[in-house]
């Protein structure tokens, strides 16, 4: 009984995605009424200059956001795990984890208010665009990166760092020669997660993007609201396939290094 429900659950998880992909090969122009097989929507997709441009913006935003978030997240995780107690730790701890449970709509709205106020008081940012999206994405992605790296740091045998120090390495060398290499799989995982989260966000951009800086999810979102064409199924199929392959490869690499590190 339990097994049967569990098995159906897996089917439930994949049927909608498979149907979504199947309809990208629909010859008709409705996303849900099957007419016949065709690959024409993929050609239509590649001629849609606006979508390609939005995809380009999204990639750039995701790259910078993930990189900033990872940089900040590594430091935050390190400070939080390797310092026993310091003033303001509770506040920082709270600030680091809160974005995880914050409804995106509120994160987006409060970012908007921040940018409006900043513009009023210090004149920057003059208008909203890629920079403001990156600032907002870096902030909420940083929380996820911090959580991933933090749990790795907690798991990590702290005597590794002590051993390096004991052998005469200055704490800075300890960090770069021992801590960073040991947690590097988690850093890669954190960066990838931040990248996909940024690439996926359709809510926060509603508040932080400006004219000419529409990202791909924002574009998809406004289209999906109206109802959709198989062109978007084709786009979705491409995204799912690319991300799927990337994730499976990344997981395999990580599993291999993980096995090595858990001696």
């Amino acid at each position: 009984m339990l097994r049967a429900i569990g098995f159906l659950g897996f089917i439930f998880l994949y049927i909608p995605l498979i149907l979504l992909m199947a309809y990208s090969f629909n010859a008709g122009d409705r996303a849900s009424l099957w007419v016949g097989f065709s690959t024409k929507w993929y050609f239509v997709l590649f001629e849609n200059k606006e979508l390609l441009k939005a995809a380009g913006i999204s990639m750039r935003v995701a790259f910078f956001s993930a990189t900033i978030a990872t940089f900040l997240g590594v430091i935050a995780a390190f400070v939080l795990t390797r310092n026993k107690r310091f003033r303001g730790k509770v506040l920082i701890d709270g600030m680091v984890t809160s974005p995880l449970v914050m409804p995106e709509i509120i994160t987006g709205f409060s970012m908007l208010i921040l940018f409006i106020s900043m513009q009023k008081f210090i004149g920057w940012p003059a208008n909203r665009g890629m920079t403001t999206i990156i600032l907002a994405h870096s902030t909420f992605c940083m929380a996820y990166v911090t959580v991933i790296i933090r749990s790795r740091l907690v798991d990590m045998d702290s005597s590794l760092e002590e051993a390096a120090q004991d052998l005469g390495a200055h704490p800075i060398f300890v960090f770069f020669q021992v801590t960073l290499p040991v947690i590097s799989p988690a850093i890669v995982a954190g960066w990838l997660l931040a990248f996909t989260l940024s690439l996926d966000d359709a809510v926060i951009v509603q508040f932080t993007s400006g004219a000419g800086s529409t990202t791909l999810p924002a574009k998809i979102y406004s289209q999906v609201r109206q109802g959709v064409t198989p062109e978007y199924n084709a786009l979705a199929t491409l995204i799912i396939v690319i991300v799927g392959i990337a994730i499976i490869t990344a997981m395999q690499i990580m599993n291999r290094t993980q096995r090595m590190h858990h001696v």
């Binding site: 045998d157 005597s159 590794l160 051993a163 290499p181 040991v182 090595m260 590190h261 001696v263």
Partner: peptide, 10 residues
Amino acid sequence: MFQSYALFPH
């Protein structure tokens, strides 16, 4: 010499 040996895995 540490109880867990603390060898650098990499």
